[in-house]
């Protein structure tokens, strides 16, 4: 851990000002990931701006009938919020599938978006990692890649190769629900559709998301449609709790008279961001609920997946999980 200074601004503008002013400064909220990374010498901020006193800690209805989740509301408070439980149970379930009760009590909604990959090589300074140290190589590509990505990877150029995954459960549900991320910064406020918030590694694997320097996430907006009747979150992992997803699936369906009116399928544990293919989801619209349709969607969603040895099993596992989640959401299956 490096030497760093610390401040605790009381309002948003001072927080943003400090971030611009101090080189190498970082925001800290729950600290559930950042502090670990600092102890391992992976993150070395020169200054920590504690944003826990800026407000941004409420959950409120929006004018369009949706819900605004303050960036500093904890994951636990969000998961158990009455409105979330009633109208967005998919989100509640996904949050509760992640981490442990203790971590969820500290972790914030904004922070959850910024958690970094759990790639073993990212966490080990003795090994190469393009995300941690651009240009050093990717240890996972020919190494131990059980938890790594099968979709949207970067594996052609050793200096930009990255097969890391985004580890969040919450973000998989937010992707399915088509949430919107509200940010504010030197250029003012803007909104980022969830699908555009995280990014694939491409030629810049060190960049996890599309937020600009100096910006801060203030809230996550949920649209009115919560899919509270037909939804499912399945998380497959190496133990029953306190483990990151090998594969997770968030499904949200709208069904009327056994016909599918709307469909969302988002995958976790398989890519550098929550994985969706809206064009594939669209093929379900107007179709009857049937296992054959679900199988076809699973195949199409995973199409182009590539295994790297230890993680090749994820290709088959993901397909099966998608089918099961769709069946559960459509109530063809009892939920677990």
């Amino acid at each position: 851990m490096n030497n760093f200074s610390y401040s605790r601004p009381e309002d948003l503008n001072s927080a943003l000002g400090e971030l611009t002013k101090r080189e190498g400064a970082k925001f800290i909220a729950g600290g559930t990931n950042l502090l670990d990374l600092m102890k391992e010498n992976i993150e070395r901020p020169s200054h920590l701006i504690d944003i826990n006193h800026l407000g941004l800690n409420t959950i409120e209805a929006t004018a369009d009938g949706g819900l605004r989740l303050g960036a500093l509301v904890t994951n636990a408070d969000t998961a158990y919020h009455e409105n979330v439980v009633t109208h967005y149970p998919l989100l509640s379930q996904a949050i509760l599938a992640g981490a442990s009760a203790q971590l969820r009590n500290m972790a914030t909604n904004g922070g959850n978006l910024f958690q970094r990959t759990r790639c073993y090589y990212f966490y080990d300074l003795a090994t190469p990692c393009n995300k941690r140290e651009p240009g050093s190589g990717c240890g996972a590509l020919r190494g131990y890649n059980r938890i790594h990505a099968i979709l949207g990877t970067s594996d052609q150029n050793s200096e930009t190769a990255c097969i890391a995954t985004h580890p969040s459960d919450m973000c998989v549900a937010l992707a399915a629900l088509e949430a919107v991320v509200r940010v504010t910064g030197p250029a003012g406020e803007r909104i980022i559709p969830f699908a555009d918030f995280h990014r694939l590694p491409g030629n810049e694997p060190w960049r996890d998301n599309t937020i600009n320097p100096g910006e801060l996430v203030t809230a996550i907006d949920l649209p009115p449609k919560g899919f509270s009747t037909n939804f499912a979150y399945i998380k497959l992992r190496d133990r029953t709790s306190y483990a990151f997803a090998l594969v997770s699936v968030a499904v949200a369906l709208e069904i009327e008279n056994n016909r599918i009116l709307d469909a969302r399928v988002a995958l976790g544990g398989v890519a550098h961001k929550p994985w969706r293919k809206p064009e594939v989801e669209a093929t379900l619209i107007g179709q009857p609920v049937s296992e054959a349709n679900f199988q076809a969607v699973a195949e199409a969603l995973i199409d182009g997946a590539k295994g790297y040895g230890h993680n090749t099993f994820k290709i088959e596992l993901a397909k099966r999980a998608i089918v099961r989640a769709l069946q559960q959401a459509a109530k063809l299956e009892p939920t677990a």
Binding site: Y120, D124, A126, T127, R146, R239, Y242, A243
Partner: peptide
């Protein structure tokens, strides 16, 4: 069902060297 220290033979190094990735049962197991 869970426990395993995994060596990466490229580096001759155990890679899952944390209790997040070296799995032992949790209460739910």
């Amino acid at each position: 069902l869970e426990e395993e220290s995994v060596l990466d033979h490229q580096f001759g190094r155990f890679m899952n060297h944390s209790l997040a990735e070296y799995h032992v049962p949790v209460n739910a197991d």
